[in-house]
Every structure is written in C-alpha cells, then in structure tokens.
Amino acid sequence: MTTIKTKDGTNIFFKDWGPKDGQPIVFSHGWPLTADAWDAQMVFFAGKGFRTIAHDRRSHGRSDQVWDNNTMDQYADDLAELIEQLNLNDVILVGHSTGGGEVTRYIGRHGTARVAKVALIGAVPPLMLKTEANPGGLPIDVFDGIRKGTFDNRAQFFKDLTIPFYGYNRDGAVVSEAVRDDFVRQGLMGGLKGELDSIRAFSESDFNDDLKKFDKPTLVLHGDDDQIVPIDASAHSTVKIVKHAVLKVYEGADHGLTVTHQDRFNADLLDFING
C-alpha cells in the first residue's frame, strides 16, 4: 500500500492517480468513510489531466488505527504532511463534510502557500454544535446519539445512517442498496475508538477563525435538503465569513450529493477549477 509516515509515527494511506505533472487535487473524505468515497471524482479529474490524491484519515480505512490524537488539529497536520511529503504546490483542496473541516483547519494552521483553490462540499464549518453563540447548530444530544449508535452496533448504525445521508427517505428517491452496503464497508474498515473520537472532532470544532484566513478562491457547495449537516448553520454561515466565496446550492439535494448527483457535481467542480 502507498503510505506516508507522519511525525508521530502514524502510517497514512493514500491514492495518487493521474499524471504526476498535472495540477494536484487533494480530496478529504467525510466520516466514517475512506478515500474510496472519492473514486469517481478521482477517475473523472485524472482523465482531465489532473493529479488526484485522496487519503484515509488516521483511524479510518487503511491508515493506522491510533488510540490518541484523533483530533481536527491532527487531521489538518496529517494533511499538511501529505502535501509536503509529496511536494505538492498549486493544490486544489476539496473537502466533504468532516473533510471540509479538515481542509479548513489545514488553512487555519498551515496557511495557503501551497493552495490554489478550495472547495467545501456539504462541509461542517463554521460549527455544528449548538451553543449560545451558535444557536442554529445541532444540540449535543444529536451527537451523543451518534456516539451511542456507533458504539452499540456500528454496522447497523452505519446502515441506518445511509437513509438520511443519501436522502433515501425522500419522495421519489431511487434507493441503491449497493451504495448503502459500500458505506457500511468503508465505515467498518476504520477503528471504533478513532471513529468515536472523530464525532467530537467534527461536531465541536469551531472553524470561525480558520475561515477568516481563507484568501484563495473558494467554492461552498451544499444541498438545501442536507439532513446531516443542515445548510443554514454551515454553508450559509461560511459564505458570510470567507471573502469572495461562491455559494452553489443544489435544490432538494442530500448530504451524499457527490454520489447522488455525481455527474452534476463533477461538472460544477471542474467549472470552478477552470474558472
């Protein structure tokens, strides 16, 4: 397997497809998935001449399952080490859901010297948790429920989660049992401890200060029927902070729109990159 070793000794698995001299696109996946979630995008963009890279977050997929350091700061540092060890420049960062938080924290901690553009897809920033300062967020009970479901019966919880994740509970939705099974497959590749830690990382991390450091062209793309990361407390808030961010809303679209709206999403991301 292709891996890098981070400063704390963790092996991070990654895929590196397409021409090595192409402009790099680095994809960061959502919870509890893996780099495999980006396969269709990687093939599409590699076919357009881009170098496409996606990694398994620590404690997810084929990366090492670690007991400690499953935090948003460490995720961002791992992303930085991947970019630096591969000596990538003029990078297009694309993050979905938790991956959007990872990308945002990367910019907050490491800046944009190696970055050309940023795309946040159904992303968790600025803050998912409901607080006095963030009344539009989700109450802690929601995330406690995710923790309990993951701990009690991870396989069943992941299978059930696919229904709202892909909007399969909406009228007219075409349900793919294969997509549901693949979500569970990817989720079960990760370590339970790391996935539990990651719930806190994606729900309680405050990205407001990180977003203020964005100084590159930024696409914020979200479905307005996202049942996992509601649009009002995420995308609509992010574009108020990031100067010159472009907001693209998919009417009626779900959280897993990179799958359910795959061709449209690929085309829109390509337009943003080329624009």
Rank of each mutant, 00 (worst) to 15 (best):
T6W: 08
G9Y: 15
F14K: 08
K15H: 14
P19H: 14
K20A: 15
D21A: 15
P24R: 10
F27K: 02
F27Q: 05
F27C: 12
H29C: 14
W31V: 02
P32L: 07
P32V: 12
D36F: 04
W38H: 00
Q41S: 15
M42H: 04
I53F: 08
S63W: 02
Q65V: 10
W67F: 13
D68C: 08
D68A: 13
M72P: 05
M72Y: 09
A80K: 01
L82V: 04
E84L: 10
E84C: 08
Q85D: 15
L86N: 08
N87V: 11
L88V: 06
D90Y: 10
I92T: 14
G95I: 10
G95C: 06
S97F: 06
G99W: 10
G101P: 05
G101Y: 02
E102W: 00
V103P: 02
Y106S: 09
H110N: 15
A116Y: 03
A123V: 06
P125Y: 06
L129N: 03
K130N: 07
K130E: 13
P135Y: 08
G137S: 06
P139C: 07
K159A: 14
D160F: 00
L161R: 05
L161Y: 15
G167V: 00
Y168G: 01
N169C: 04
R170L: 15
R170I: 08
V175N: 12
E177K: 10
A178N: 10
M189D: 07
G190R: 01
D197G: 12
A201N: 01
F202V: 02
S203I: 03
S205I: 03
S205P: 00
D206L: 02
D206P: 02
D209V: 08
D209P: 07
K213G: 02
K213H: 11
V220C: 13
D224W: 01
I228S: 08
P230G: 09
S234R: 00
T238G: 00
V242C: 06
K243F: 14
E251W: 04
H255C: 05
H261G: 10
Q262K: 10
F265H: 00
F265L: 14
N266P: 11
I273C: 14
N274S: 15
